[in-house]
Simulated scan of single mutants.
Amino acid sequence: MKEQIQRHASSNPIYGMGFIGALVYYISHATSFWMGLLGILKAILWPGFLVYEALKALGM
């Protein structure tokens, strides 16, 4: 079972690269310590923002 899960987990590196990119972006644009912490939270939740904006753009 463990081998089967690892074989189908090919999206993890893509999420990881997106997380690192979002983390660098949000922290580099932070103007204070609290905005940096908010940036870390946003970096974790970026796929949710992406799906929300895509559905909003499609009018759903």
Rank of each mutant, 00 (worst) to 15 (best):
S11E: 13
K56W: 07
V24Q: 08
Y15H: 01
P47T: 08
G21W: 07
Y52A: 14
K56P: 00
M17K: 15
I40H: 01
L50F: 14
M17S: 04
P13I: 05
S11Y: 14
M17T: 06
A9W: 08
P47W: 03
L55C: 09
Y26G: 06
L55Q: 14
M60D: 08
L58H: 06
F19P: 00
K42H: 08
I5C: 06
I40C: 03
L45Q: 12
A54Q: 10
M35A: 07
W46I: 03
I40R: 00
R7N: 14
A43H: 08
I14V: 15
E3D: 14
S32G: 06
A57F: 00
S10G: 14
L58R: 15
F33P: 02
L45R: 05
M1D: 11
L45I: 13
K42R: 11
Y25C: 09
F49C: 10
K2M: 11
G16P: 01
K56T: 13
G39M: 04
L58S: 04
A43D: 01
F49Y: 04
K42G: 05
G16D: 10
S32Q: 04
E3R: 12
V24I: 15
M17C: 05
Q4P: 02
I14S: 03
G59Q: 13
W34R: 08
A57L: 13
G21N: 10
S28L: 12
S10I: 13
T31K: 08
A57G: 07
G59P: 01
Y15S: 03
G48H: 03
R7V: 08
L55V: 15
V51G: 06
P13N: 07
Y26Q: 12
